[in-house]
């Protein structure tokens, strides 16, 4: 079966660092950055991008709607 490869793009400046996306990811892709954005929030990023399947869970649960998701079939 073709494997799904995904990637997310977090709008770093709009992320509020709530961390709800971290726990919603079934493949444990997301972590919070050590640095902060202009508003002083630690923002979410893909620490383990190879694990992302593009399932959209993180984007669906993000209260600020700052995650965009891409997915492609890998042969």
């Amino acid at each position: 079966m073709a494997k799904m490869k995904g990637a997310i793009v977090v709008d770093m400046e709009r992320c509020k660092g709530c961390e709800l996306c971290v726990g919603s990811c079934p493949t444990d892709v997301i972590r919070m950055a050590g640095e902060v954005n202009g508003k002083g929030y630690h923002f979410a990023y893909m620490e383990y991008p190879d694990n992302c399947t593009g399932c959209t869970n993180c984007a669906v649960v993000c209260p600020d709607g700052v995650i965009t998701v891409y997915r492609v079939k890998e042969d």
């Binding site: 990637a7 593009g54 959209t56 669906v60 995650i67 965009t68 998701v69 891409y70 997915r71 492609v72």
Partner: peptide, 10 residues
């Protein structure tokens, strides 16, 4: 992966 044609959620 991050290409317009692969967009699944925005």
């Amino acid at each position: 992966i991050i290409k317009p044609e692969n967009l699944v959620y925005k």
